[in-house]
Design a protein around this nucleic acid. Structure first.
Lengths: 338, 338
DNA sequence: TTGAAAGCGCTAACAA
DNA sequence: TTGTTAGCGCTTTCAA
């Protein structure tokens, strides 16, 4: 066991080749004679040599790590996506540095600055709504980036995601089709979050097609937690008139709302229908099973990973399209008309 | 806007000081005259200077990043803990590199090797059951590490966690106290996972105090997913005799099991009691609310972060003790005797 | 295809 | 307290 971590120089010496050749043997093996390659490999093995990433990064100006900044890491939707992002990146030879701004978008540029200092080759962001400083830093440091989850036509080159507007529109259309007219919406916090805003707009648009309006007192902004969903229910039952359905912006909201209904003796969906969005695994485990919209969580992680690596390597961008979402009909939305 | 990223040399030149002084102004500001400090700071600001982490790491042999290897990133229990780990580390000036071995412990040393290459100052692992190669690599590279979640007396110096044995013992004691004698256990996969094994042993021990045994056919190993919990239910109803209670190793199992019971017309807890472990937020949202054991998820992340930074700085280790767990009685465990 | 050598941008030891 | 300077371990020309 070597007392000090062996360096490439040790490898080269042992293999009887020059430092440069040893380096090439490791990074561009096909530019090296097979015999040389083998000697270097043997030396590497013998010494238990592992590259020094810092030195490599300094000399090559690439760190082979990619940063991702999330609103939070503990929302299941993000957690699943992080998992697939990490696994895919790993397979492509990249590591993942994660950070979160904890749903305080104004902190994002600080987080990014710290990441920049650390050094990364590219950046994965959530959504399209970021402070100018964030885009500015990315530009200044020539840092390739992808925007995940949201898909916006105007930024299609950078986006890996789906249309929140469409997803919400579809769900709301179903709700309307089922005969609901008194409709409440529990969304996330709209400020600094274009996904929330798109959901609200999509919902409104669907209602508008049948001349319905989203009443202001029935649009409830809540943090993305079970408790947020519970709050929404408390809020709507405080009013003298109850909606017949609560459209939730996420399944987390919906599950929380169902819990609160149960605690208050409200039957779902008989007394109140509740719909979700995302189709997390939990959606089909709770009672009643959630009618929700399935979104491509894993796919986003996988594609974002591939895409960002392509960007790093200056591969021509393939034409990006919005990923698909689909409404999953289960039991939490009641049919009022037939 | 500078065309090329400014270096410390640029800063020094602009500030009219030597390179070394500029470096000190940034890393050990109190070893620098206030006047110098201020000039450097002004230059930094003016140039929008950000340190080059690779160069810093190469020269100082510290990367200011810490790696954490998890079985998976998308289990809520880990996600919450990662979140608190990341936030705490951030506050201490460290970044977090995450990786997962996807519940294939045999991959862990490969993952570690890749991380080593990247360069980190310390390591956070989950549990105490790791391949020799993992410990060997950590030793060889003098990489400080903490073992999280599990607390074992024999490794108390490295552990931040609780006793899975005790937690399971307490839960099983309650189950017994409630009059159950036909008891099934849905654990995770025991191989390479001392937490699962400790749970099984703790459960057995509690049963043994009243002369009860855990029947082999009622010990069910399942992956940590809702589906795993569902499977457990399917398995026990396949036998001619049914247990009266299913003790689940995690709330995820328990929630899945509840879902499966509902789908099969089994009433929880009347037809089958189900208990969980972890007390994730969901535990009090599902119906029936889970009787479970609360574990210090957030605390583990926070403490692990502080501890690992102390280790890096060679701070004397404070005497570590096991964190506390506590049984939370809700509605999913039926009392058979009074 | 290989070897030699000049850095990459910073830290830290040393001298002043 | 500051300046000078020798590396840290690797990549990448350039020439052979």
């Amino acid at each position: 066991m070597p007392e000090n971590r062996p360096t490439l120089e040790d490898v080269a010496r042992l293999a009887g080749v020059a430092l440069g050749s040893a380096s090439r043997a490791l990074s561009v093996p096909d530019q090296v004679k097979p015999a040389t390659l083998e000697r270097v490999q043997r030396a590497v093995e013998q010494l238990g040599y592992v590259r020094n990433g810092a030195a490599q990064a300094l000399a090559s100006r690439r760190t082979r790590t990619i940063a991702a900044i999330y609103p939070t890491l503990d929302n299941p939707i993000f957690a699943v996506s992080i998992q697939s992002l990490q696994q895919t990146l790993w397979g492509l030879g990249y590591q993942l540095l994660v950070a979160s701004h904890d749903y305080r978008p104004e902190h994002e540029s600080d987080v990014l600055r710290a990441i920049l200092e650390r050094g990364v080759d590219a950046l994965v962001l959530v959504g399209t709504d970021h402070a100018d400083a964030v885009y500015e830093l990315a530009r200044q440091y020539r840092l390739p980036y992808v925007l995940t989850w949201s898909f916006e036509e105007t930024k299609r080159q950078q986006c890996i995601g789906f249309s929140y507007y469409d997803a919400a529109y579809r769900m709301a259309s179903l709700v309307v089709e089922y005969g609901h007219t008194k409709i409440a919406l529990c969304s996330g916090v709209a400020s600094g979050n274009e996904r929330v805003r798109a959901r609200i707009k999509g919902t409104q648009a669907a209602l508008a097609t049948v001349g319905l309006d989203l009443r202001p007192e029935w649009v409830i902004e809540q943090p993305f937690t079970f408790e947020g969903g519970r709050q929404a229910v408390r809020q709507i039952i405080g009013h003298h008139e109850m909606p017949t359905v609560l459209i939730c912006g996420t399944d987390i909201h919906a599950v929380g709302a169902i819990g609160e209904c149960r605690d208050r003796g409200l039957k779902v969906p008989d007394d109140l229908s509740i719909t979700g969005s995302d189709d997390i695994e939990l959606a089909s485990v709770v009672e009643p099973k959630l009618t929700t919209v399935h979104v491509p969580t894993v796919e986003i992680g996988v594609r974002a990973a591939r895409r960002i690596v392509d960007l790093i390597n200056n591969k021509p961008a393939t034409e990006e399209v919005a990923l698909e979402t689909i409404v999953i009909v289960r039991d939490s939305l009641k049919r009022l008309v037939h």
